[in-house]
Design a protein around this nucleic acid. Structure first.
Lengths: 213, 213, 213, 213
DNA sequence: AATGAATGAGGCTTCATTCAT
DNA sequence: AATGAATGAAGCCTCATTCAT
């Protein structure tokens, strides 16, 4: 592991995984430490032995908890994507019928998730390609659902004449991108809180779609 | 190499490297094929032998042209970042003094670069962390310069009262993100041309900073 | 490995390592077989795979026991030097205060060690330069201590008028050399026993320093 | 090449090869630089490219002068052994019939050769085993002849009653060893000149064989 | 005489994984 | 649940050597 090559991807973060998603004992520790290492060095750059060492066990012992390294990554990506989807859906459900309010709610949730769990988000977006195809399919499905939630908001707002976008899919791409990249530069020592960033980005999204604010 | 795991990151692309940046002969071929493979499988997922095989030489022969695998990556990242910077600067120089025109020009260049050389852009953004620190420093400097060009436009437009942004750095982050992510989803078979995408994203950027359009 | 180039350095030997210094199991076997091969072909001429094959395991398995090839060499050199030092010190302690008796004791121990463990001695003297500097320091310290033991005997004998040498350091060099080279030509099929050689060389040393015998 | 591992074998020396033995031009330079590098890092530790670089040419160009790396080593070993033999024989011829004077002459020549060309001597004694068998045979013949010259002196002196040794072969081994090891510790910055060392060691040899001095 | 490019062989090492304990 | 030992595959890289230029 390249110790001199640290933190070019992501600064230190304390909360790694959403509460309630982490298993007990070694199983959970493996997940957190794998996340930390995958975020820092990439999936290929962190070995089973590295992870085990962080946990305080030996490499072989990891296999008492996960059948393979890919299973660990898959679980992380699943947790990340599901948490992200859940938050967006919950935000949307609470937002009421007004398209602008919906957009604000969804973008806030999207951005917030990436700022609150940046390691999870970085791994989810940067290490997807390391996941064998059989693991990727259901996770990509979740991702597509998340995107669809946002796309539907944009489309509906456009149809209702509240938004004005030349190309809904490009608007989706642009708005989604803002949030995704947050995970790559946000660190807890940033002078803005995740909430503040989420608020500003929600405003950006509204402007982007031409909503009156 | 995970053959079943192909193309989850990026679709096929024809032009890999900016003209004039590619050396002649094997040296240039190594660069292109490494780019293709790094984009597809990641730096760690593509071996020297894989690259050599694409070029039609043996692994050991790669070392007649580059002293290490990291040097190949470094050259790709340097080309990518310098081309990106050059385009943004050229666009800015041609744009005249009007902030909105400047923003449009810079964002178009930014987006266009990511759509025209998506592999280079993907590798530049996703494999930076694989580069040993001694190679990274000068490249990160170029990256910072590129960002500064855009940030200065945003700040000046804001000071002149042409733009209205609550937080110039967040605006930069948002606008930059849009373009960066283009490389991850754009493919030549997209129904939009790079120009069209660049135009729409430039419009998004203008809206985002509150410029009258 | 150059099979036609065998045994130009040293003839076959049965006991390789001092008893009590060899670890159990594969760890110990690796040490003995590495010693045999390093003595025969040099450090650079014996590969990890060669060693592993002699042990009956695969190359990768060597790394379950030693973190690198250099560590194996370092352990061999450490054992060799420490055993040598220990024997010389023990001999000196048992020799009483008389300089000539001390010289005889020390030289006998010195020669005996080289004749009894010729492979260890050959490797210790011929492969030192292959050891990375960080490993070499403590070992060279032991070597210096061994030399000092002999030098002190020579000096004291000279000061007491029992010996008569023009240059104590050269006497040390000459006497030490006799013993060191024994490892390069002595083989168990020699018509002399190690004891006999040690006795004769002790006599030579006495003559060399001008002690009355 | 391990730059931090320098000079653990031998200190810096200016004259590398006996005058008249070095070919002109690149051919000679290759020989000297190979000697320097083989002495420092061992035959296996110095590559053809390393040698070429010291000479100021490329690795491939070495093959315009020597058909293989082994040929370079062979030439060095041949030069070293022949020079050594020639000096011993010349010394013996000039010494007259008196055994003690013969011994002094031969030992002086032996020691002097090792102190004046320590690199050649180190390589000759430490890298012999790296030489393929077909090259080694004639060189070992020369070595045997050199030894015989000294052994014959010892035997004759003993038969004539001038010397008194319990075992002529062991006396040879001891006396030869003194000289051989000189190459490993002697450096031009030593406070003794090669002549002084040769004189002292000749005296040691006389004492060792029990010659009246 | 020298070189750039290429190569086959091989070196050390890491890694995910297995299995008996 | 954990471990030490082992392994096959593979990775990066070095090396002596060849050959056309």
């Amino acid at each position: 592991m390249n110790e001199t090559n640290t933190n070019r991807r992501l600064a230190a973060v304390t909360t790694l995984l959403p509460p309630g998603m982490t298993p007990e004992g070694s199983r959970g520790l493996i997940l957190s430490e794998a996340l930390r290492l995958f975020a820092e060095h990439g999936y290929g750059g962190a070995s089973i032995r590295d992870i085990a060492q962080q946990v305080g066990i030996k490499g072989a012992s990891v296999y008492s908890h996960y059948p393979s390294k890919a299973h660990v990554l898959a679980e992380l990506l699943r947790i990340g994507h599901e948490e992200h989807f859940r938050r967006m859906r919950a935000a949307l459900l609470a937002a009421g019928p007004e398209p602008t309010q919906q957009l604000i709610a969804v973008v806030r949730a999207h951005v917030f998730a990436h700022a609150e769990y940046p390691m999870l988000a970085v791994v989810a977006s940067a290490e997807m390609h390391a996941l064998p195809a059989e693991f990727a399919t259901p996770i990509l499905e979740v991702r597509r659902n998340s995107e669809m939630q946002l796309l539907d908001v944009i489309r509906r707002g456009t149809e209702l004449g509240v938004f004005n976008v030349p190309d809904a899919e490009l608007a989706l791409a642009a708005i989604a991108a803002m949030g995704v990249r947050v995970a790559h530069w946000y660190a807890p020592d940033n002078k803005r809180t995740p909430e503040q960033i989420a608020d500003v980005f929600a405003q950006f999204a509204c402007r982007l779609v031409g909503a009156a604010v």
